[in-house]
Design a protein around this nucleic acid. Structure first.
Lengths: 241, 241
DNA sequence: GGATCGTAGTGGTCTAGTCCATTCCGTCGA
DNA sequence: TCGACGGAATGGACTAGACCACTACGATCC
């Protein structure tokens, strides 16, 4: 960007700090340390609060990582993650990653009204709530919460504990194969629980993927919400318009 | 909050403030004012900075909107927006919205290396950079930056100024119809320019959609980056796994 | 009646601190 | 040699205030 620049829009000071950091940063390798907050504040003649505001955005973009007690470092590049997750493990291995799932909980309970509506069951009817952690190379990528009708998939929780994947269980034990899905993508700040599971900060921007899938007859099969770290993941999809 | 509370995960104080605001908020109608920052700080026995941190997350989630000089208000619900945008106008009208485009700029210049790579042209070869603002009911929804090969689409900028849509121009004047696309979705904070165009704040979380589309022969047609307000938009897609 | 001007109150930005939790790493002791 | 301890440095959370830009709205003036 050689041409006109930086005068028309009056920008806040923290944004100047951010651009300065961007310049310093992109000649460094991932993992390299960045000057400390107190040093930056002194060097740039500003307060630590202002420096932190700039750092906060760079962390949200996935360019820096902060480690309390240690320092701030240049982050690894984002990884890409496919939208269609019918074959989560396949897709991951295709990218040279070792994918794994960790079952956090699988409980049977009364469905909240919105969940019941999506599953096509009565409000208060029984539904499974399955919470899983998705990992790639043992690093947590996403928290996934799935809801399925308990009446339609009896004993689901027991089958899951054997370690097989949810879709495999649906196919083998119930003969159900998802045929279509509607997905929705939005952003939200991480709650303390998600932040803890995904090893990030409360309030960090997340990519929230909702997946509403149906079988061949058009009946709803499951309703899933996946929370991805926005600073480490880019979702990708192949479309045929 | 009658039940167990505030002990297992030690949460920062601003998160307590946030949850308090969530309760107060969801019994209010969109557009209702929320107490001012100074009042909240006094009521909750905390500092304005801490209240602002809580408000900031609620704004990022799309639950509140802030208007400088006026106050903070309960936000309208998010709108949904389709991923496949081949027929942007159709999709919008289907949702009962009046869609429109505003051409911000259409310039011919040398392609940066990454853009050139995506367009399948030599680095430094000529490319059009087309910047548009997408609106629904005259409210800005997204900023879109498209790159197309200048050699392949001569006089493109002139055709566009006539007001027709990009895809219509490609079809009518060049006989090109996009046949497939790869999309990528990630998050990023708004730059001052995007914030100004979309009437939001610098640093607000955005949904960034990259679209790399190809014609029937597999040759790249365009490379588009769309910036959506994360607090007002949910992207949706229909998939057939 | 209608336009203009002030002013009070709002959110936006920034400062200069404090104290805390965590990490790192050198020193000391067994 | 190896472990435990402790201090120093880091980022995390928070405070109490300052000044600015902007908005709303009433009072004033034509």
């Amino acid at each position: 960007m050689s041409s006109a620049e930086g005068q028309s829009l009056r920008e806040p000071k923290y944004y100047t700090v951010k651009r300065h950091l961007l310049e310093v940063t992109d000649s460094l390798l991932p993992g390299s340390p960045v000057p400390t907050e107190r040093v930056l504040a002194a060097e740039l003649g500003t307060s630590r609060t202002t420096v932190r505001q700039a750092l906060f955005e760079l962390v949200a973009e996935g360019r820096l990582v902060r480690r309390q007690g240690s320092g701030t470092y240049v982050a690894e590049p984002k990884m890409t993650w496919p939208l269609q997750m019918a074959s989560f493990t396949e897709q991951a291995t295709a990218n040279g990653l070792t994918a794994s799932n960790q079952l956090l909980s699988a409980v049977r309970g009364q469905a909240e009204p919105d969940v019941a509506g999506r599953l096509g069951i009565g409000a208060g009817a029984a539904a499974f709530r399955i919470e899983r952690l998705r990992l790639a190379d043992d690093r947590p990528i996403a928290v996934e919460v799935s809801y399925l009708s308990a009446a339609r998939f009896p004993q689901l929780a027991r089958h899951l504990r054997r370690g097989s994947s949810l879709y495999a269980v649906l196919h083998e034990h119930y003969g159900v194969v998802p045929a279509s899905a509607q997905e929705s993508i939005s952003t939200a700040p991480a709650t303390p629980r998600e932040a803890a599971l995904l090893d990030t900060d409360t309030g960090a921007p997340m990519l929230v993927l909702g997946r509403h899938s149906f079988d061949g007859t058009g009946a709803p099969v499951e309703w899933v919400t996946s929370w991805y770290r926005g600073d480490r993941v880019t979702l990708i999809a192949n479309l045929r318009p």
